[in-house]
Write a protein that binds this DNA or RNA. Structure first.
Length: 478
RNA sequence: CGGGGUAUAGCGCAGUUGGUAGCGCGCUGCGUUCGGGACGCAGAGGCCGAGAGUUCAAGUCUCUCUACUCCGACCA
């Protein structure tokens, strides 16, 4: 095949140059196009369809737990952004400003939202009066802007699409429970629907969200062993609410500050899907969010009855899966390669020989395994194959993570391991910022999280030798 | 933001010491094909990333900018 110059979309082999492979997939699977503004990408129909499926799935989960959608403005007055000092310090270096209105300079410049905590708090300061109105559990689907220096499609763009949930609660306990619940929602979605195993934990102070008391994260490991922060959930205590004067009359009729959370996932998740599951043939999409779950390829479509049979199957399958009939003039081989590139989980081939035998050929994208399936069994076999494929994607990813997870008790081990390969490195940690910085400087790794599931690897921190009670997972990150 | 690379048709590329642009694939039409990236014939398609400059003349030389890409630094 390598001498065939007519390949539809040749991509760089995954193990030859992972970064280039990733970029190739983004462009050649027609997920994105670049725009004329650095770091601002166009989500093309196929890429946006993936995002739509992610949105629908998560939105249903949020609604089921009592959240309501809202829409906030995209502009934030500078004065509002300034109110919480840690927050503004964290975001100021990467916000874009609107300084002109028409031809007139603005007296107060406006920031294009990098995140909307300030807008929500400003709003709540006006509408909240009584404990009876709590909790307020809001979410919005929108895009935000952060003026990143280095950009890559999905992983880090200046404008990106996400959801940001913002809630306020009467008590700290309730807010903390909300933070945990939403992290759990993300983890469940990642594992069950994206087939991506995730590591749940808390961020160190160095890595937590600007202005938060605690940041919880799900971390996913990519094919090359690098980590990708794939979703975060923050507990703010009452810090923002105090800064924005958000108050309510409590049960005892005293004025109180609510306790706040926020949580978000973004189009970065699509990057995680690509880099977790893809292979040399292209993208592999988890069945739950694949825009097309089964592509129907008629073979010898000009022969009488073939297209008719394919159209009939399309109608039948559309009742229980997202199906596309590719009745274009391209050759079957071209279609096979093209739909593999685009990551469609199952391909169903139907030709004259099949029709004679009342069967079809079904090919799995993950293993490329072919099977002959009697047409009568499609309603049973297709869902079973989709399930098996999703399970296999998860198992493969889990295996890769397992292979690339290491425990170290001394700095020498850490340095050696980090130098040899990418992956998770588990060590004990004393909690000192200095040791965290040393890990970055010497081994080139950052703390991914303090996992909820702790292990006791040794008694001391490998950096400073002081007593260490908690285990941290380190790694190189996107 | 620092360092390396790139920018010529939709994609991949060629274009000599400066002389006004070509190839393959794709695309359009017709016909033959069709179980792993088909073939024939006939066509369409380019202010050479942008802006200045040098020159009789710039894809080619000079400067500036922009975007992409890779490696760092930075970054919910």
């Amino acid at each position: 095949m390598s001498d065939n110059k007519k390949m539809v979309e040749a991509i760089t082999p995954i193990n030859e140059d992972f970064a280039q492979w990733y970029t190739d997939i983004c462009l050649k699977a027609e997920l994105v196009d670049y725009s004329s503004v650095k770091g601002c990408v166009i989500l093309r129909p196929y890429g946006y369809a993936i995002w739509e499926n992610i949105m629908h799935n998560l939105d249903a989960r949020f609604k089921a737990t009592g959240h309501e959608n809202v829409a906030m403005p995209m502009l934030i007055p500078e004065s509002l952004l300034q109110k919480e000092k840690d927050h503004v310090a964290g975001f100021a270096p990467e916000v874009a400003w609107v300084t002109m209105g028409g031809n007139e300079p603005l007296e107060d410049r406006l920031c294009v939202r990098p995140t909307s905590e300030t807008l929500f708090c400003d709003h709540w300061s006006r509408v909240l009066h009584s404990y009876r109105e709590l909790p307020m559990k809001y979410n919005q689907w929108c895009s935000v802007m952060r003026w990143e220096k280095t950009t890559r499609p999905f992983l880090r763009t200046r404008e990106f699409w996400w959801q940001e949930g913002h809630t306020i609660h009467e008590t700290a306990e309730q807010a903390i429970a909300e933070t945990e619940q939403q992290l759990e929602t993300y983890a469940d979605f990642a594992e069950k629907d994206l087939n991506i195993p995730v590591l749940k934990g808390r961020k160190t102070d160095k890595e937590k969200f600007a202005g938060a008391e605690a940041t919880y994260t799900i971390e996913a490991m990519m094919h090359d062993g690098k980590a990708l922060q794939s979703g975060t959930s923050h507990y703010f205590g009452d810090g923002f609410c105090r800064a924005f004067d958000v108050t309510f009359a409590g049960r005892d009729n005293t004025l109180q500050y609510p306790h706040e959370t926020s949580w978000g996932v973004s189009t970065r998740m699509i990057g995680a899907i690509i880099m977790t599951h893809g292979d040399d043939e292209g993208l592999i999409l988890p069945p739950a969010i694949a825009p097309i779950q089964v592509v129907l390829v008629p073979v010898a479509a000009h022969k009488p009855g073939v297209l008719e049979k394919a159209a009939e199957l399309q109608m039948r399958l559309s009742k229980f899966v997202r199906v596309k009939l590719d009745d274009s003039d391209n050759s079957p081989g071209w279609k096979f390669a093209q739909w593999e590139m685009k990551g469609v989980p199952l391909r169903l081939e139907i030709g004259p020989k099949d029709i004679e035998k009342d069967q079809c050929v079904i090919v799995r994208r993950d293993t490329r395994e072919k099977s002959f399936v009697p047409l009568a069994e499609l309603e049973v076999q297709i869902p079973a194959l989709l399930k098996a494929l999703g399970d296999n994607l998860y198992a493969r990813a889990a295996e890769n993570r397992e292979k690339r997870t290491f425990s170290c008790t001394t700095m020498d081990e850490v340095l050696k391991t980090a130098a040899e390969q990418n992956g998770y490195i588990k060590t004990m940690w004393c909690g000192a910022l200095a040791c965290e910085e040393q890990m970055k400087e010497q081994a080139g790794i950052s703390s991914r999280c303090i996992p909820f599931e702790q292990e006791h690897l040794s008694d001391v921190c490998p950096c400073c030798g002081k007593p260490a009670a908690q285990m941290v997972v380190w790694g190189k990150a996107y």
